[in-house]
């Protein structure tokens, strides 16, 4: 394990461009499966649903269907939620920095932000990871890992005591 951990290497601008290419073309519509591992839980908490990204409006719609139905809207202003039976989206996170981080990841606009220091590991082809450099952001997310595996994109968000793995599958138009 120690060997694998040390083999993550910082990548230069040219390499970064190449490594990020698959993530610049994130699916704009698809389904997701999320698996959340809490340190003190033996079973991960799974959820699933659909998502849609509007790159022009810079907005992510996250429609969770299981285990509870809930719609989340993430834009530059913050994170908003709409519960089942409710008409309006209610702001649940006022700090816009976290929404900006999530939008940067989902819209693939992750090169310009100076929050990241991207690294890659030859042993994990198709994956890049970065610690979050901003102190403000690191209270939410400490590191991010992005993997591009055939038709699935994986996002791993590491928080304090929690690791969240999100798998995105693109909906292809028939």
């Amino acid at each position: 394990m120690a060997t694998a951990a040390t083999s993550w290497q910082t990548i230069d601008t040219q390499q970064l461009k190449q490594s990020l290419a698959p993530f610049n073309n994130f699916p704009v519509k698809g389904s997701f499966v999320q698996s959340k591992k809490l340190k003190f839980l033996t079973v991960p908490i799974r959820s699933s649903g659909n998502f849609a990204i509007d790159k022009v409006k810079s907005e992510l719609l996250w429609h969770q269907q299981t285990p509870v139905e809930q719609q989340t809207k993430i834009n530059q202003q913050g994170i908003f939620q709409q519960k089942q039976g409710q008409n309006n989206f209610v702001k649940v996170v006022d700090d816009s920095v976290i929404s900006q981080l999530l939008l940067a990841i989902f819209t693939g606009d992750i090169t310009t932000e100076d929050w990241f220091l991207w690294q890659r590991n030859p042993a994990e082809a198709g994956c890049i990871k970065s610690d979050i450099l901003s102190a403000d952001l690191s209270q939410y997310v400490q590191s991010i890992k992005l993997c591009h595996l055939q038709n699935v994109l994986q996002i791993t968000l590491s928080e304090n005591q929690v690791e969240t793995l999100i798998e995105l599958t693109e909906h292809k138009e028939e």
Binding site: K36, F40, I45, W62, P67, Q81, I98, L102
Partner: peptide, 21 residues
Amino acid sequence: IEQQFAALTQMVNPLVGSTFT
């Protein structure tokens, strides 16, 4: 119960990790 699951499945929620134990 619904709120508990909503919080547990929220994409990012640092308060869950900090207080769950």
